[in-house]
Write a protein that binds this DNA or RNA. Structure first.
Length: 567
RNA sequence: GCGCCCGUAGCUCAAUGGAUAGAGCUACCGGUUUCUACCCGGUCGGUUGGGGGUUCGAGUCCCUCCGGGCGCACCA
């Protein structure tokens, strides 16, 4: 770890990050086990938390209660023994037992302050880790039909999916973001027929697409391809369908880039069939022995692995089902080298979870390790309490573009990421366009801009804090300690968000950190006033500001939200 | 009928089995001759839908009931 290196090679005060502290508790446990002959299962990571009540110290752990039974000691006795060892460590001011066996740890000021230097030198890598190192993960999301604009549900996944991918990468995984283009089947034909009908001045078929964007597509295609009108009807449907497909897909791609959600792979369902991946996938399933024939159709026995019913791969009429594409697509992802395929689906597709897991198992994989399905609940938009349902472009849905037009990319992304995906969400447009503290995205961005302003002013005063001495013990106030504590949590938060696939934890963390900074700012003067000399306290606070700026910037980066230097 | 998700303050929502369940908004009270007041402090607000259980400890895990959303194709 960086801090350790500093402590040894430069003679700076030993720094204590939560990760180091966790290691120290582990070390104390094995010391105890050895010296007292205890048989305890020492966990790989000792859970440390920041107590809500600061009277309980800087950090607390419940490890003694968790291990007491296996150690054959009472929780308090085990805790006492651990505290005796921990109190000897450099950087720890005190360790004490509380309540049923909590261990409360207080760091000494200098050890805590070292963190500012650690963060500044880690720079944009601060918070990144190796929890998922070596894993190759495919994250598939949105995967809409190219038959219209992306709607609100897609938009939620665009924001969350992208953030999940960024967070997984920060935790050390190799990640590809993938969009599966549903460009095959009757929806495409209905789409083509709808555009053609409008181009010909006829009414859109009952089962067709009715949004205003169909009119725009028809007009664009008619202008570009006047020769389509000369084709016979069957050829014309196909010509309109293909031209509209191309335009609509391009529109989705452009809007997503604008939304800062970049896909590494756009995978066409058609290409799956054209490449022979479907029969290849089928072959794989046959080899595993879960394919059977019944009533003239070919089935996959997904009920072997927890699905409600078996699924048809090839219909009695000889056509592949959509499900056949799904299975082939899964096999193809694995063949492309992904250890894990993560699917992000809307709540209306939760019935697919068991099916997809069963597909993995039928292909001979581990359905717990190789496939993962996350379900996102629906989003509702209100304006002053009234639900908004109408889109400017698409009729009775709200599109990604509509939302971005209303609130901007930063507020849209942040507001969608801020809540866990599995809870239904209602966003009020009036709230997320306000530039006040009831709108957390601006609250966090403002904290960043505020830090930047202080650092700019320091530069104007020719205070070169970077090359001056840094005295970590000068960060001694309650607010400085609280801010350092918050900054130290960041790597943990990133790792947890990655492990749980919950980027909202990053957003919530940033809000807490912003609050800690604002409190610090209100109580601790950073820069010298007037003719005051520059003290080590000023310099230390500048280091703390720089560390705060870096942490907030790194966090916002994981959410795909800008960190403005001025507001 | 079967299955999945949800139910936490008036509203929108947090809380990885831990200590007194937290934020923001709303209402009210206060703070800046000083680095960005888009900020900070305070007051009011709860039987975590109900009832059982598991254990040192449950908003969190299990069972059950109530309420809401969604899904149960040889459609895509």
């Amino acid at each position: 770890m960086h801090e350790g290196k500093y402590a040894l090679s430069t003679g700076y005060a030993a720094g204590v990050t939560p990760e180091e502290l966790s290691e120290q508790v582990r070390g104390a446990l094995s010391d105890l086990a050895r010296s007292q002959g205890l048989t305890v299962d020492i966990p790989e990571v000792v859970h440390l938390e920041r107590p809500r009540n600061r009277d309980h110290g800087d950090y607390a752990t419940n490890i003694a209660m968790a291990l007491a039974k296996s150690a054959g000691l009472s929780p308090r006795d085990l805790a006492e023994a651990l505290c005796a060892v921990l109190s000897q460590w450099p950087g720890i001011e005190s360790a004490s037992v509380a309540g049923p066996g909590f261990i409360n740890i207080r760091l000494d000021t200098a050890a805590q302050g070292e963190l500012a230097r650690t963060i500044v030198s880690a720079g944009e890598h601060y918070g990144h880790g190796t929890l998922l190192a070596g894993q190759v993960i495919n994250v598939e999301f949105i995967s809409a039909n190219p038959t219209g604009p992306l709607h609100l549900g897609h938009t939620r996944w665009a924001a969350i999916g992208d953030a999940i991918a960024r967070v997984l990468a920060a935790a050390g995984a190799t990640v590809a973001k993938e969009f599966y283009i549903n460009d095959r089947g009757v929806q495409m034909d209905r789409f083509g027929a709808s555009v053609m009908a409008v181009a010909q001045g006829k009414p859109v078929p009952e089962d067709g697409y009715h949004g205003g964007y169909i009119t725009d597509l028809a007009a664009a295609i008619s202008a570009q391809h006047p020769e389509f009108a000369l084709l016979d009807d069957a050829e014309q449907v196909s010509a309109y369908r293909e031209a509209a497909y191309e335009l609509q897909l391009a529109q989705q791609q452009q809007v997503l880039e604008l939304f800062r959600t970049h896909f590494d792979v756009w995978y066409s369902e058609r290409s799956l069939h054209e490449s022979g991946a479907v029969p290849a996938g089928l072959q794989r399933l046959r080899e595993q022995g879960h394919v059977f024939e019944l009533d003239g159709a070919l089935w996959l026995r997904t009920t072997d692995f927890g699905d409600d019913k078996d699924r048809v791969l090839i219909k009695a009429d000889g056509e592949y089902t959509y499900f056949a594409s799904d299975t082939a697509y899964y096999v193809d992802k694995r063949n492309r080298g992904f250890d894990r395929a993560i699917y992000l689906l809307g709540a209306d597709h939760h019935g697919y979870v068991n099916r997809l897991r069963a597909v993995a198992a039928c292909a001979g994989d581990d359905m717990d390790a190789n496939v993962e399905v996350l379900i996102g609940q629906l989003v509702k938009i209100t304006r002053a309490g009234e639900e908004v349902k109408l889109s400017k472009r698409a009729g009775n849905i709200v599109t990604l573009e509509d939302l971005v037009d209303e609130v901007g990319v930063d507020a849209a992304r942040y507001s969608l990421i801020r809540y866990p995906a599995d809870s239904p969400l209602t966003l009020d447009l009036e709230v997320i366009t306000q530039h006040t503290s009831d709108n957390p995205v601006f609250y966090v961005q403002y904290a960043h801009a505020r830090v930047c302003s202080v650092l700019r002013n320091a530069q104007d005063l020719h205070i070169d804090w970077r090359s001056a001495d840094f005295e970590p013990a000068a960060l001694s106030t309650e607010q400085e300690s609280a801010l350092l504590g918050a900054l130290g949590q960041f790597p943990r938060i990133v790792a947890g968000a990655a492990e749980l696939r919950e980027p909202h934890r990053i957003a919530r963390y940033l809000e807490r950190t912003a609050t800690a900074y604002h409190r610090f700012y209100d109580n601790c003067r950073v820069l010298p006033r007037g003719d005051e000399p520059v003290t080590e306290e000023h310099l230390a606070r500048l280091w703390l500001c720089a560390a705060t700026r870096q942490t907030i910037a790194n966090g916002l980066q994981l959410l795909g939200v800008h960190a403005p230097e001025r507001m």
